[in-house]
Simulated assay, not measured.
Amino acid sequence: MPPKKQTLLLALSGPSSSGKTTLARLLHRSIFPPSTTLLLHLDDFYLPESQLPQRAGLVDWDSAGALDLVALESTLQHIRMHGSLPPTFVSKEDSNAVWAVSIPSETISALAVSTREWWTAGRIGEYVSQIVIVDGFLLLGKSIPQVRELFDVRVLLRAGFAEAKMRREARSGYVTLEGWWEDPPGYVEKVVWPGFVEEHAFLFTGGDVEGDVDEKAVRTLGIEVAPKGGLEGMLSWVVDIVRQGVERTIDGEGSG
């Protein structure tokens, strides 16, 4: 009797402007074989702006209180069961631009070739129907363990405060349910970065999210934390982590 095919959920999380969406789109569109991946964005689960919490006197888009967690969990469970997005689901996040890809096309092509050879040689398609890539700033945070536990592979990208601030402030704005949002002055310092630190400090030694990883904490939770470095190296690392996660899950050793 052939094995039952599985839908694998990959969490690609990290601070704002750490490269999550860029890498997720590359994995989905360029690296893995066509029709083997789905892409979902956490930003598609924001509540209406009128319902968002406040922080430092500003609208807070960077906390769990800004998200429709019921809809997120329901969507992930539907994907797990059916291997597809709910029929009524429409993404607005695909309308948002991401920072320009500086990765050489040769690197992307080489990763695509090796990944597709791995997929075929390992007969992955006999065991896996879809790899669902979910990118978002708060998939692995301290306050929503019920979301974190839904994922088979859990990846946390890294970016320092200065780097994240530079990239975020280079963006013109974001498409929202109501239309358009532009960060007010000081938004990264007052809202974005403090929110990330509060949710992820428990994964780092001494709570320093720019310092050393707390190896015991991440190992216990099955989280893979990216090494520091540029986007090209990060892409290669993520591809390797996803492959390992797929193989562990097929062998019955997935993180759950």
Rank of each mutant, 00 (worst) to 15 (best):
M234Y: 02
K216Y: 09
Q244I: 10
G229I: 03
A226F: 09
E247W: 07
G211T: 07
G211R: 13
K216D: 13
R219I: 02
E247N: 03
A217P: 04
M234L: 13
V246Y: 04
G207L: 07
P227T: 00
D214W: 09
D240C: 14
P227F: 08
Q244P: 02
L221W: 05
W237I: 01
I223R: 00
K216A: 13
D208K: 11
L221G: 11
V209G: 09
G233S: 10
T220W: 12
V218C: 12
S236D: 07
L221M: 14
V246T: 13
L235Q: 06
V242Q: 00
D208F: 11
P227L: 07
G229M: 03
E224G: 04
A217C: 05
L235R: 09
A217L: 01
L231M: 14
I223C: 00
G245Y: 01
M234A: 08
I223H: 00
V239F: 00
K228F: 13
L221N: 14
D240E: 15
M234R: 15
G222P: 10
D208W: 08
K228M: 08
T220C: 13
F204D: 04
L221V: 04
V218P: 11
W237G: 03
G230I: 06
E232F: 05
K228L: 10
V238P: 09
G207D: 06
F202C: 08
G233A: 07
D212V: 08
E224R: 11
G207I: 12
G230Q: 06
E210Y: 04
G222R: 04
F204S: 05
V242L: 02
M234V: 12
R243W: 14
S236C: 07
L221S: 12
P227A: 03
M234G: 13
E215M: 02
L203M: 02
W237C: 05
T220D: 15
K228I: 08
V209Q: 10
G211D: 05
E215C: 00
E224K: 08
E210R: 06
L231Y: 04
G230D: 13
L221R: 15
E215S: 01
L231H: 12
D240W: 08
W237L: 01
E215Q: 12
I223A: 00
G245D: 04
Q244K: 13
R248F: 05
I241P: 00
L221Q: 14
E224A: 11
F202Q: 09
V246C: 09
V213C: 02
M234E: 12
G207K: 04
D214V: 11
E232Q: 13
R219Q: 14
T220S: 15
Q244A: 14
L235I: 12
E224S: 12
L235N: 11
D212A: 14
G245I: 01
E247Y: 00
R248M: 10
R219F: 10
I241V: 15
E215Y: 02
K228E: 12
E232C: 09
R243C: 11
E232K: 10
A226G: 08
